[in-house]
Every structure is written in structure tokens, then in C-alpha cells.
Amino acid sequence: MAQTEAPIAPPKTGEQEKTEPRDLRDRGYLVICWNDPVNLMVYVTHVFQVVFGWPKPRAERHMLQVHESGKSLLVRETFEKAEHYVHQLQGYGLHATMEREE
């Protein structure tokens, strides 16, 4: 793991789970990273390690999937957590989006 900051913790949703509708609580939201030719491969790997706290091999596997397949499904999460991750990834300049699982 890169020797930088600890993984960025997603928001806790315990309290929200009691009040929000079920469809927002379910882990039905996909965080996808899309390929672009400008972000360095080592940078993308580093960002995945920092944002998700993944070990380097897992981060590299997703980075290569982005590079070779044009996109990679990174995580399937609740609305709040998926939104948090997209904010983090875009903050690093990666082309990440969240999509509702069909």
C-alpha cells in the first residue's frame, strides 16, 4: 500500500438508514471508472489504493481493466457511499461515475 494517507472513510449511514427509504439504502449503486488516455497508470493504481484502501494487486487489476476494457466496476454500494466514492475519485481527476444497477 502506498505510504500516504489512510483510506478515505465513506460516510456512516447508520442513522440515515432508519429514516431513508429502502431503495436508497440498498447497495444498488455502481461506481464505475472510465478510461481516458491521460491519467498515468501508476496514478490510477495509487488513487484506488488510497480511496478504497485496496492492496496494490487489487488496485492494479482494476486499473488494467479500465485501461484494456474501457471501464471497471469498482464497487457496488449504497447511494451515500457510492456518491462519496465518486466525489473522492473525481477529486483525484479520475473519470468516475455512479450508476443505478438495473
Partner: peptide, 8 residues
């Protein structure tokens, strides 16, 4: 970028 490519 856009938050989503879908139309939800």
C-alpha cells in the same frame, strides 16, 4: 465530470 452517465 458528470456524476452519472445514466438517466436515474
Amino acid at each position: 465530470y458528470q456524476l452519472t452517465r445514466g438517466d436515474a
